[in-house]
Amino acid sequence: MKTFYWLVKRELWEHRGGFFWTPVIIGGIFLLLNLMGIITGEVLGGSTRFNIAFGGEGNNMRLLTRNLDQQSMTAVGAGLDMAMYSPTIIIGMVLGFVVFFYCLGALYDDRRDRSLLFWKSLPVSDTATVLSKVVAATVVAPAIAVVVGTLTGIAMLLMFALALSFHGVSVWHLLTLSHPLQVIANLIGSIPLYLLWALPSIGWLMLCSAWARSKPFLWAVALPVAVGIVLGWFNLLGTITLQNSWYWREVLLRILFSVFPGGWYAKIPHVGGNNPAELLSSVGVMHSYAVLGSVNLWVGVATAIAMLAGAIWFRRWRDDT
């Protein structure tokens, strides 16, 4: 257990840039852009004496806080929650890229620079090594993304609140309409879901990473695409009845792009709603766990375990240093 902890920690050391600094920098840019937006609003509003939203006696913002009925209060709360999700969503998309390339390099880079020989000189099993990399990709990286994303979201809300309070709007009251804890719970709650959902991609990419003698990216992408083209060709000839679109959607997409969070929503019925609050609750963690009931997910997990076993085998026996 102690060994495993240090193995994961080693991954963090090596990929501090991708796992930690990338979300931090994106969060920072996000805040900066918002700050620039606020300042633009202030300056334009001040110079043209035209108040877009706030300032003055009868501005709509103050009206909002004063006269909100129950339904609008929910809508405002949902809007705030959504604003809080937004940095995490953007960081999550970038996380997909980070995890994708991390997995491709995880079992390849140290073979290429021969540092594999150092790692292999230590009493650590190849199973533990591979699994530590899986954990780094599916638990540690998303956890950091969620923490940074949430902090950015909260910072953003506070920034807006502060800006509004200069105009005498009691936004603290407005902020109480949002549900930060619920947002955090939803985001953290979806990490296990991400693990299960991303596994087929992680498994495939790591298998290529452990197997390829060179250019793992090319193999990982070109191979499934080539299979898809061949299938399509057979389809054209009418020799097989396999649905071509099924292959692209359920195989190719799953083994290459499941590292991007949120793909599971495609497997859940009734995502959406007539207003922001309904939409939010439909993508909430309580609802999204419905995907655990889909066979697709579990077939993916089982396939992933087989591919990871393959990756471990190649890690043990691939001899090209």
Partner: peptide, 16 residues
Amino acid sequence: MEQVCFIADVAVLPRW
């Protein structure tokens, strides 16, 4: 590997 150590070539320590 608990009982065996090896130095394979120079410069196999990870660069990072």
